[in-house]
């Protein structure tokens, strides 16, 4: 474990806490893409298949449980909770996310570290996580002005993988066995997708103005 990865995990956790805060405090999920949340639940469920078979550390197991439980809880809130589900922007959240799942799965069958059940699903979860934010970014552009908590949620979500890139650079130089090309390349693509959001987030912070993405 290194400081970059720990900071990345904490940033990821903060993003989830900010989203839970938004939903709990405002009893609303407006501006949040249910499709992105469903994709994240799928990412965690397919990546942490070894949750009960492998043991790395208490921290690793606890964080996996938190990520799986929180992502399922958010999807439940947006689909089932009688008050929250009413504020879901169903007619704006129209990204065909099934294509993202299919593309990631096909790529995982072609590009993997080892042709084994868990490895294929691990690679699938890595590719899917890289593009899972697309429905959310499209929804932000369509819904015009973005409320603060939603903006912070997306910012921390993008920042966590950027910290993981620093972690991979650090491990590349310090850990001779280290070779995570699948995670590294996907992580770069994932972070690059946030580039324009980060720019508009910075502008809104610098001008102390409401976050606004161009249509």
């Amino acid at each position: 474990m290194n400081i970059f990865r720990f900071a990345g995990d904490m940033t990821h956790l903060i993003s989830i806490l900010v989203l839970l805060l938004k939903i709990y405090a405002t009893k609303s999920c407006s501006g949040i893409s249910l499709k992105t949340q469903e994709l994240y639940a799928l990412v965690f469920l397919t990546r942490y298949l070894d949750l009960f078979t492998g043991f790395i550390s208490i921290y690793n197991t606890v964080m996996k449980l938190i990520f799986i439980a929180s992502s399922l809880a958010i999807v439940w809130c947006m689909r089932v909770h009688p008050i929250v589900r009413r504020s879901y922007d169903k007619d704006l959240d129209t990204f065909r996310h099934y294509f993202l799942v299919a593309a990631s799965f096909i790529l995982a069958l072609l590009l993997y570290e080892k042709f084994a059940f868990k490895e294929i699903f691990w690679a699938f979860s890595i590719y899917l996580e890289a593009i899972a934010i697309l429905p959310q970014l499209v929804l932000l552009q369509r819904s015009g002005n973005v409320d603060n908590l939603t903006g912070h949620y997306v910012f921390f979500l993008g920042a966590y993988r950027a910290l993981y890139i620093l972690n991979w650079i650090y491990r590349y130089f310090t850990d001779i066995h280290f070779s995570r090309w699948i995670a590294c390349v996907s992580g770069l693509v994932q972070t690059a997708l946030y580039a324009d959001f980060f720019y508009y987030y910075y502008i809104s912070w610098r001008n102390n103005a409401k976050l606004k993405l161009p249509a």
Partner: peptide, 10 residues
């Protein structure tokens, strides 16, 4: 070794 290909990252 078994250790190497275990995915230790979240």
């Amino acid at each position: 070794s078994e250790e190497e290909d275990k995915h230790d990252e979240l």
